[in-house]
Each structure stands twice: as C-alpha cells, then as structure tokens.
Computed example of a mutant assay.
Amino acid sequence: MPGRNSQFNYQWFLVGTLMYLSMLSQADTVDPGQNYKALSLTLDELLTELRVPHDNTLESMIDTSQIWRRKPGQERWELPKLDIPQNKGHRAFYLLEKLGLISPIAPSSTQYDYALLLGATAPGMKRRLDYLAYWWSQGVRFKHLIFLVGQRPLTPGVDYLDILVRKPDNKNLDPFPFTETEAAIMLHQLAPMPEAMRALPVEFIDTPRAWRNGLWQRPNTRDTLKQWVKAGPLPGTALIISDQPHGVYQKEVVRQELPGFAIDLAAGPADPATTLPIYLDALALWLYNLKPFIPGAEQAASSETVITPGRH
C-alpha cells in the first residue's frame, strides 16, 4: 500500500499532468480581459446556450450575466444546481474553458517578490498551498508568502480542517481553529511543503468582517488586499495563488488594488465537486469587475464588496 510520501508525490504528478494539458489547450482560450471581441462572441454563445435573453453588446451581456451571482449572505456551496440537459451542460463547460475558467494556469516566471495565497475554505487553502509547493519544486521562488485571509468563521461540513491536518497520533487538534485566518496559520504549520519554503517570511492578513445590509459579511478578495495595503508593502512582483474557476476574477481584482505591482497568476485545477453554478458565479463576478475597464462601458454602479458576500 502506498505511504503518505507516495500519495504526496502522486499529487504533484497529477498537477503536472494537468498543467501539461493546460498548455496544449491555450490556443483555444480567450485572453481574458484583453480580447474583447472574442470575449463578446463566447459570452453571447454561452448566454444563448443557457437560454438567457440578452442584447448583443458586451456591456449588456455583462449586465445580464449578473443573474448568476450569489445573493448577499449566500456562499458558493449553497448555490442550487441548474436544471439543464446534459448536452447543454457539456457545451457550457466547453465555452467556460474558452473563457479561461477551467484549465490550470502556470506561472510565467520563476522569480517573485511575493506569493499571494488567497483565502478560501480550509480544503481550498490546502489545495492552493499544495499547488504553491508544487511550483516551488519546479524552481519557482519568492521572498515573502502572504496569506490574504480574514475572520470568516469556519463552517462545519465545509472546512473539516481536522481531517486535513490530523495529528499522527490521531488525536483532535487543540486548540481547534475558529476562523479562516486561524485555519491558514495551522495549515502553514502542518501541511507538507519544502522546508526552505516554510522558512520564508510569512504574513497572515487577518481581515475583519463588516456589517452590511443587516448581515455580517465576510471579507472578500478586495477587502483582504485593502487590508494588506494598509501595512505599506513595497511594490514588486507578485504571484497570485488561486484555483479555478476563481483565478481570473481574483487576478483582475489584485491588478486593480495593487497598481504598482507586476501581477502574475498560478491557478490550480478546480475541485472536482465544483458545479456549473459556481463556474457561472465566478464568471459573472469577473465580468462585473472587468466592466469599468472595457472601452465605452459605463462605470460599475458600486464596488464589488457591496454586492458579493465573499470569495474563495
């Protein structure tokens, strides 16, 4: 029976294989946020395939796509499934692939000042930390590891951190983490990674929640970036560590919030349990944040933090 090290090595093999397949598929993928004509054509086809009435201008299609967004206070894992024929689901995933929301994305360099690991559920952060460790094993280096996390209370049945970082003696963790930030701290201490990577300077940006519209709203990507900027980080090169389908949206938000930085993205494969509504929510959120920068489009009505309750 394979031991723990064998399972760990297999994980890197799997990620490497997915990255190779990703590079083979790049020719058919829209360059997100730059090729507006290709974006318009693909988005028009996706809306038509899912039978969503819309006008043919990109600005109108972005507005129409917001029907896929979560409601305030709703988490991604709470989105209901779409009742659509299987062939339409397959076609939708093909179009989402063209939009750059499915295949993993490799870093374009090997040297960075910062690795920005974006907060998520505990399993999501574990996947992102594993993905970063994989790229370290491939020669990618950075000087500082920044966890952009916050005071989201952990959710039983979703975070299950006790399974991810169970002690060798099989005893319960003590004390058990209560928030996303505390989970990130424990994962950094206990998750397997190269020791040289673990020894790097690390910061946990513990972003507070906010009371909005009668609800406690957990911090989202933009909130965590604003919190980090308050500490006055020196501009430099930054590698975003995320996973699909959230990487493209998060790269756009980081680009907006860190104008003096050179931004790159490494996005790991999506969790196999990711449903079509989660992909569509991620697409709509990216388009919402992209809209103010599309030539001729009107300024978005309000900031992302007003409409969306959180992020992975």
Rank of each mutant, 00 (worst) to 15 (best):
T110N: 13
I102G: 02
W136E: 11
F147E: 01
G139A: 07
Q138S: 01
R141D: 14
K143L: 09
K88M: 13
L95N: 05
R127T: 12
L145T: 14
R152S: 02
P107H: 03
K143G: 13
M125T: 07
G89D: 13
G139K: 06
W136D: 11
T121Y: 07
L148Q: 03
G124Q: 02
G157I: 05
Y160G: 10
G89K: 15
R128L: 02
L96R: 06
Y131G: 12
L117T: 03
P123T: 09
I146N: 10
D113R: 06
P123C: 09
P107R: 05
L145Q: 10
G100T: 04
T155Y: 10
G150I: 02
T121E: 08
R141I: 04
Y112G: 02
T121M: 10
Q151P: 00
G100W: 05
L132E: 02
R127Q: 15
A133Y: 07
G150W: 03
P107W: 04
K88C: 11
P107I: 00
I102S: 13
V149M: 06
G100E: 05
G89I: 01
Y94Q: 15
I102V: 15
Y160P: 11
G150H: 02
S108A: 03
Y131F: 11
P104E: 03
W135S: 00
T121C: 05
R91I: 12
K98S: 04
A92P: 07
K126H: 15
L129Q: 08
E97A: 00
P104Y: 03
Q86I: 14
L161W: 12
G150C: 04
T121S: 15
G100M: 08
R152V: 03
V140A: 01
T155L: 13
E97K: 15
L148S: 08
P153E: 07
E97G: 12
H144G: 02
D113S: 09
A133S: 15
I105Y: 08
V158F: 02
H90Y: 11
K126R: 15
A122M: 06
I146W: 10
L132I: 08
Y131C: 03
P156K: 12
A122E: 11
D130F: 13
L116C: 04
P153K: 12
F142P: 01
N87H: 15
Q151A: 08
I146Q: 09
L96M: 11
G139D: 10
L101W: 05
Y94V: 08
Q138H: 04
Y134K: 00
K143R: 15
S137D: 12
P156Y: 10
A92W: 13
L118Q: 02
I146S: 09
R152A: 05
L96N: 06
N87L: 13
L99H: 10
